[in-house]
Nucleic acid binder design. Sequence first.
DNA 1: CATGAATGAGTCTTCATTCAT
DNA 2: AATGAATGAAGACTCATTCAT
Lengths: 204, 204, 204, 204
Amino acid sequence: MPKVTETHKMLRRQAILTAAEEVFLGKGYQLATVDDIAVRSGLSVGALYRYFGSKSEILLTLMQERLGRTPELLERLTSDAGGPWEQISRCVDIFVLALRVRHPSTGRLLLVAWGEALQDRIVRDGLMLRFQGVVDYLRDVVERGIQSGEFRAEADAKVLASLLMCLADGVTLYWAANTPELELHPIRATVMAMVRSYLSPQES
Amino acid sequence: MPKVTETHKMLRRQAILTAAEEVFLGKGYQLATVDDIAVRSGLSVGALYRYFGSKSEILLTLMQERLGRTPELLERLTSDAGGPWEQISRCVDIFVLALRVRHPSTGRLLLVAWGEALQDRIVRDGLMLRFQGVVDYLRDVVERGIQSGEFRAEADAKVLASLLMCLADGVTLYWAANTPELELHPIRATVMAMVRSYLSPQES
Amino acid sequence: MPKVTETHKMLRRQAILTAAEEVFLGKGYQLATVDDIAVRSGLSVGALYRYFGSKSEILLTLMQERLGRTPELLERLTSDAGGPWEQISRCVDIFVLALRVRHPSTGRLLLVAWGEALQDRIVRDGLMLRFQGVVDYLRDVVERGIQSGEFRAEADAKVLASLLMCLADGVTLYWAANTPELELHPIRATVMAMVRSYLSPQES
Amino acid sequence: MPKVTETHKMLRRQAILTAAEEVFLGKGYQLATVDDIAVRSGLSVGALYRYFGSKSEILLTLMQERLGRTPELLERLTSDAGGPWEQISRCVDIFVLALRVRHPSTGRLLLVAWGEALQDRIVRDGLMLRFQGVVDYLRDVVERGIQSGEFRAEADAKVLASLLMCLADGVTLYWAANTPELELHPIRATVMAMVRSYLSPQES
DNA sequence: CATGAATGAGTCTTCATTCAT
DNA sequence: AATGAATGAAGACTCATTCAT
């Protein structure tokens, strides 16, 4: 009965990851103890170590599963868009809505990851990979818009892409840190306004 | 001769802060030990504790002295600008140039601070305060531009301000983390282009 | 069919012992894990515990089966010797050849056993028992040689016996620890020369 | 006042080593905890780690200070001997008397060291070094005796030396393990008798 | 005031052993 | 009988902080 076992293992893994996420979001990675995670996931420490080789491996996995998929998520959710404009719009929406409604923990997890980035090279690499992935996708979207003539030809796709990525994560961090007066909806509107004015072909 | 002593104290404090900054930038706050800082500042641990009550207090002070002054720095460096447009342009410049040429460590320190934000409430509050300060200033600049008619009336000053702040810190973080392919000059140019197209009063 | 089961059990036991021996010789008793042994013997940990009550019991059994039989082995292999001189000679041979050609692992196992002797009383007792057995046999050989007049009458059989035993194990240990420049053949020759000169009845 | 501090440090070091030795002799290296050593030496664990980098470093140092000096000890105590015969005799004496009267713990420490030899390469190397040192010295003694004509010319100095070393450690181990019926004095006498009969030039 | 030795609570991790399936 | 997941006690080591000198 390998199926039951496999499923079981998967469930355990997920339970641990969920527990770890909760603990990390609560007190940060460094202050979270392996015991905390074990207790919250209803396992013993020893059992936990059957699924993850170390505390940092848990964070890494969490990053891969929760943050690393951002690029493909973007791609999936915007592939059926009508055109570049709608694609861009949706991307911005996703960053905003994903933060608020669907995966409120993602933003906080990003905060945790940044917290470790300086001390842990692999965590940093994970963040860089995510950056690359998102930027590549955004760049692609913009370039196609330029080629189709819907976006202004002079726009710098690559730079705009990394700029949007930085903006998104900047917003995410401040939002995750509970910055008062950081309202996501107006921000989204303004970002779109700026992007629109920047990318619209000059009338002449 | 209390004055000499005062000066002496100040020098010591600064030596500690500088040493701490170097250590923090090197291995992050958590991995840095008080001993590391003591050794690098040429003091004993005991002496160090006469100047700062705890390790985290050092980080706090460092943040206040190195990051907390960003708002007034912005203000000072842009006060003699010709008008709102130049002010905005200079602000963006400062974020970019400050990162690269003048205070390359500031960006990395921000990374350190964000790393602790989740686990340390006071650090987080420090970041929020800085956010508020910068946003308030930027908002003021934009609002004055609107009032003088140089900026589009419909622009949302407050949102634009926080948006720019988030963008600046997002860029800083990725830059401080050595993200490859993150070129500051093109980014600055594009940001300005976007801001310009967004803030320019509609023709016609 | 209890007989088949018995055989089966025996095979399992032997498989475990062989596996354990290999593991112990490789990394020592303390560093070897029960898992190591289980994996190498092709069993699960649980199954292994049906054959041996504890990790140390495995070592004990190993000692009994591999080391504890030294006395009877000596006896068996030297019983058909022509006389005391040949018996003594063969005993020395056995210690030397057994180490090199036939059971190279025995020496290393002795090393493992000595490693545990201090921390495990039962292991220590096992070594003592083996010591007693070998000494008793050697003593018997010498005494018979004395009685038959072939050995010098003043020789102290008991002391010579324990001395040879100590020498044998001393050599074994250093050999098992891969001491360079420890050549067994010359050692055997010299030991025999010493024994001969010591045991030979004084001429004149 | 560096002198006081240095002395103090030395005393602490020795206190730790003594405590460690006692603990190791009592329960063996593996079963001894760092806490055990700390408590017995009257220090805290943290303090202990200021003097030794790891538990195994303590054992290593102990070996170097207690066992590693065996060669020079031999040399020192036998240098003023009248001739090769007395030198050999004294060497054997030292191994015997050192065990019983003067440094009863040395023998047990050797047992501890052998216990770790299989699992710790450095410990093993330490034992090998000691072996080499002692063997080199004994060999020298024998060779000089041969050259002076007091020892039989055909004697194999190198082999005899390693043989005696093995014998000495074999005896030490069994003695340290409290083997009943292992009387050192008779053994010493018999060893000397064997050596004498082996090394004496053949009368003809 | 300075020193740096000492403290000791707290962390991650391992592994012999058990037991539900 | 077999499996191997789960247990949890225990251990080595770190480091912010204190305090006698």
